[in-house]
């Protein structure tokens, strides 16, 4: 599975308890998808799964609004 698929699976199945299937372009921070506790779990998952430390100042709307954005952020980090 590529990064986007891994993130899709985690967010849809774990964070959302399979209530909703998210796509790479969905606005995760919009009204209903993920709450602030969910963001913390998502960051912890990213750190663990992709073996990286995400500094506080990187946990921003630009980097975490969509699955694509997280993927782009991870790619930029591994350069």
């Amino acid at each position: 599975m590529d990064n986007q698929e891994i993130l899709k699976k985690f967010i849809s199945e774990d964070l959302l308890n399979s209530r909703q299937r998210v796509e790479a372009d969905d606005d995760l921070l919009g009204e209903e998808i993920i709450d602030s506790m969910g963001v913390m779990r998502l960051v912890a998952f990213v750190e663990e799964t992709f073996s990286c430390k995400v500094p506080q100042s990187d946990i921003t709307i630009t980097n975490f609004r969509t699955i694509k954005a997280i993927d782009t952020y991870l790619a930029a980090r591994s350069l």
Binding site: D27, I34, V39, I61
Partner: peptide, 13 residues
């Protein structure tokens, strides 16, 4: 906006 309230680093910005 609510997206900021979920991301403290964006909120502080």
């Amino acid at each position: 906006p609510s997206a900021y309230t979920k991301l403290p680093a964006s909120l502080s910005q």
